[in-house]
């Protein structure tokens, strides 16, 4: 006769990609709904993961629900592949899903990122998962989630526009830094997650699928490929990305990519391109050329969203 203890499942061993299959199924259904209604926040029952809440559990759940053994996974934290948190997440995904990992944005099939979109243009076969601390773009004007949901339902965004108006009155410019609110396909206003304004245009009519997921707040939403994404801007006050004119990356000598400012002892600052995967490829390019054709294609630096003069690849999007 077997005992209950024997019948019960063992404490050891985890499901493929950590989450149990019921959890994955729920997440996949929510993701499909999010893709069907661009920019709409779909609530989901966020599971606890073995990393702290607020450290990318929302993105990680989506990644774990999507990842397969053939995927190539890249994890970014503030642009960097090698920051401790990105390394930790990458290690976890690889361990639980047996997926290959990379730092090369064009080689990855699944990119989980905290607060950056790579400089190289993503393609149709790629999925970008953005970690979201606060999915609610109306939070600053309406902290009650139930009321905010009603405002979304009625496309009632007057208060958000009013806050832009007031910023212009008080400061003569829009004082929103990262998390710049965007209108998705002429219907829902969404928070693009705290990506810099530099990255916001990259979501517009993009070839790749973007999924945004907030684990703590239990909401996920999507920007499907080839969807309009417009930052909120007045007709006569165009949206502006960060002004980094004249900043040059000390490692690559390039300009017009999003830069980190590195303060120097004794005053002043030097700059480096924030996208470390991109820097890696640029620096490797020269020896690759010398190797004369023996290099794999993936080492080539792909087309970027902004060219070396800082022009965005879609003409007329940034005025």
């Amino acid at each position: 006769m077997s005992t209950v203890a024997e019948l019960a499942s063992s404490n050891r061993g985890y499901s493929y990609a950590f989450l149990d299959e019921f959890a994955k199924r729920e997440l996949r259904r929510r993701i499909l709904k999010a893709i069907a209604i661009p920019g709409y926040q779909v609530p989901y029952a966020s599971r606890e993961l073995p990393i702290a809440r607020g450290w990318g559990t929302g993105g990680l759940q989506v990644t774990l629900a999507l990842v397969g053994p053939d995927d190539v996974v890249k994890v970014i934290d503030q642009g960097a592949d090698d920051s401790v948190n990105a390394a930790n997440l990458r290690r976890f995904i690889a361990r639980m899903a047996g997926a290959d990992t990379t730092t090369d944005a064009s080689r990855a099939t699944l990119i989980q990122s905290r607060h950056r979109i790579p400089e190289e243009r993503l393609q149709e076969h790629q999925t970008l998962v953005l970690q979201v601390p606060d999915p609610e773009p109306l939070r600053s004007v309406e902290h009650d989630i139930s009321k905010a949901r009603l405002m979304h339902a009625e496309a009632d965004y007057g208060l958000l526009w009013l806050s832009l108006y007031e910023q212009l009155v008080r400061y003569r410019r829009v004082t929103l830094g990262a998390s710049y609110p965007c209108l998705v396909h002429h219907r829902y206003v969404m928070s693009p997650s705290p990506i810099p304004r530099w990255d916001v245009p990259k979501l517009h009519q993009s070839a790749h699928l973007t999924l945004l997921s907030a684990g703590r707040e239990k909401r996920l939403y999507a920007v499907p490929p080839y969807t309009d994404v417009r930052p909120l801007e007045f007709a006569d006050v165009p949206f502006r990305v960060e002004d980094q004119r004249g900043w040059m990356c000390y490692r690559t000598g390039l300009q017009n990519k999003f830069m980190n400012e590195l303060p120097q002892t004794g005053g002043g600052a030097i700059y480096e391109i924030s996208d470390t995967g991109f820097v890696e490829k640029v620096l490797r390019k020269v020896p690759d050329r010398e190797a004369a054709g023996s290099t794999p294609a993936q080492a080539a630096v792909g087309a970027t969203y902004y060219d070396d003069e800082g022009r965005f690849y879609i003409d007329g999007y940034l005025r």
Partner: peptide
């Protein structure tokens, strides 16, 4: 608790974006 300790994560991109606003204002 997770959100509280997440503030220990680097925020230099978001902070850089904020700094840009402060400077231009």
């Amino acid at each position: 608790s997770g959100f509280c300790i997440h503030y220990k994560l680097p925020h230099y991109v978001t902070f850089g974006s904020e700094l840009d606003v402060v400077r231009s204002v």
